[in-house]
């Protein structure tokens, strides 16, 4: 027996076990498509892990190739399918600032409402994904149905959906086993830098998966209140920039955290750009979150970060 196990790695309890390196993704039911999680498993426990995106953008424009401003906006929006409105808005703002356009309050307001609509839909999408991961079929169905309705809804219809969203939050608060499944899971070490969005805001509370769930549910209600007070959403559309030139920077609080874009505009063409997103930082937290956890808990912890592999910039 000693001969057989003498060179094997030791578990935390001192037992010698065969460790397995197991890929989860890029197509896996409990994780967003495009995200590849590689975990080293010691039985049902995770000894180490790392996450990579197989679909993220590369943070540089092609050498010497200028892109038309409208095309740039479309490309950026379609490259981020889980937050296309946020990145469309980000690109519009950066280009308009580079072109020296002043803010227009009516436009800003309509854009902000569209952003909040996307935030609600995105958080519902995360809830549906979490339901899928936890085997909680009712949550998956309910959140996915509401997400589709939100995506199609006008401002008035959104307000009609308010009771349903409140009911969803209340129901989750009463669901047996849910708290014990999420409480204490995915706590980041104190002083962890680079946090943004709901993950950062939940860190002020308990900082675990349960706190992140309630942070997102609170944000859904806050966004609804904002929409109620403001008005109809308006999809971000680039204003007339003519053949403007200059340097522009913009920051948008996307559903997953802060995204920053700086670009150089020359005669209405985007010459170069630099994009920074929350997910690019959050993906680096995976190793800390999964180490020493049971497999199920590790996957819940990764899921609670709401990583969008498209928003991981390399």
């Amino acid at each position: 027996m000693i001969e057989v196990t003498k060179d094997l790695p030791r578990s935390a309890d001192g037992l010698a076990m065969d460790w397995m390196k197991v890929p989860f993704g890029p197509v896996f039911p409990g994780l967003p498509g495009g995200l590849k999680l590689t975990l080293t498993l010691d039985g049902d426990g995770v000894t180490e892990g790392q996450a990579t995106s197989l679909v993220g953008m590369i943070n540089e424009s092609e050498e010497g190739k200028e892109i038309d401003a409208e095309t740039f906006i479309e490309r950026l929006a379609s490259a981020m399918p889980l937050a296309s409105v946020s990145y469309r808005l980000l690109a519009c703002l950066a280009i308009e600032r580079a072109a020296g356009l002043e803010n227009d309050s009516a436009t800003d307001q309509a854009r902000a409402v569209a952003l909040e609509c996307e935030r609600i839909a995105s958080h519902l999408g995360w809830l549906a994904q979490t339901g899928r991961q936890l085997g909680f079929a009712w949550l998956t169905d309910r959140a996915a149905t509401l997400q589709l309705e939100i995506r199609r809804a006008s401002g008035k219809r959104l307000l009609e959906l308010t009771p349903a969203l409140h009911a969803l939050a209340a129901r989750l608060g009463r669901t047996p086993l849910l708290k014990s499944r999420l409480k204490g899971i995915g706590i980041l070490p104190s002083g962890t830098g680079g946090l943004s969005g709901p993950v950062a805001r939940a860190a002020d509370d308990a900082g675990d998966a349960w706190a992140r769930l309630w942070q997102r549910l609170d944000e859904i209600i806050t966004s609804l209140d904002y929409i109620k007070a403001t008005g109809e959403p308006g999809l971000p559309v680039l204003r007339n920039i003519g053949r403007g030139s200059g340097t522009g920077e913009a920051t948008v609080e996307t559903p997953r955290g802060e995204a920053q874009l700086s670009l150089i505009l020359e005669h209405g063409q985007v010459k170069s750009y630099r994009l920074d997103t929350a997910c690019s930082h959050h993906i680096g937290l995976v190793a800390k979150l999964v180490e020493g956890r049971e497999l199920g808990d590790a996957l819940v912890a990764v899921g609670s970060l709401d990583l969008s592999p498209w928003e991981v910039i390399s």
Binding site: G135, F136, A137, P176, L177, L178, S180, R181
Partner: peptide
């Protein structure tokens, strides 16, 4: 019953 509950943790 399973439809309305999340999967239990193995340790729990």
């Amino acid at each position: 019953a399973g439809r309305y509950l999340p999967r239990i943790r193995e340790a729990d």
